[in-house]
């Protein structure tokens, strides 16, 4: 089986508090453009947002052989390559079902 690149976007928060998930998988050999986009994102320098209320938060995860990246990006910071990357994943999986956050009681 050829090596795969998987990108997952989980959008939580928002007024409704519902989590929605999108994901994209592609053969690593065909993912040059996508990897360029992943590498263009500022994974270690995500701007936080302490002011907004009820905005979405995007948990973005990239998995590939020898590559595992994750970042929690507030909607206010979802610009430039972050925005392009999320839109790309959402397009790939156009009819997402919202799912609730799995409750785990303390």
């Amino acid at each position: 089986m050829p090596a795969e690149l998987t990108i997952t976007v989980a959008r939580s928060g928002g007024f409704a508090g519902l989590t929605r998930t999108w994901s994209l998988s592609a053969a690593l050999d065909d993912s040059g453009e996508l990897l360029d986009l992943v590498n263009a994102c500022p994974w270690r320098r995500v701007q936080s947002d302490a002011v907004s209320r009820d905005r979405f938060v995007y948990l973005i995860t990239v998995r590939a052989p020898r590559k595992h990246r994750t970042a929690r990006v507030p909607e206010a910071s979802l610009t430039g390559p972050w925005k392009l990357l999320v839109e790309r994943v959402q397009q790939e999986h156009p009819a997402p079902s919202p799912t609730r956050t799995p409750p785990r009681s303390s």
């Binding site: 939580s12 928060g13 956050t101 409750p103 303390s106």
Partner: peptide
């Protein structure tokens, strides 16, 4: 609707700022 109505059912999660809407 996943909202708890009692402290016994408080939800621990990393999403949504620690479940602020839950």
């Amino acid at each position: 609707d996943p909202q708890p109505a009692h402290f016994d059912d408080y939800i621990q999660t990393d999403e949504d700022g620690g479940g602020v809407h839950l």
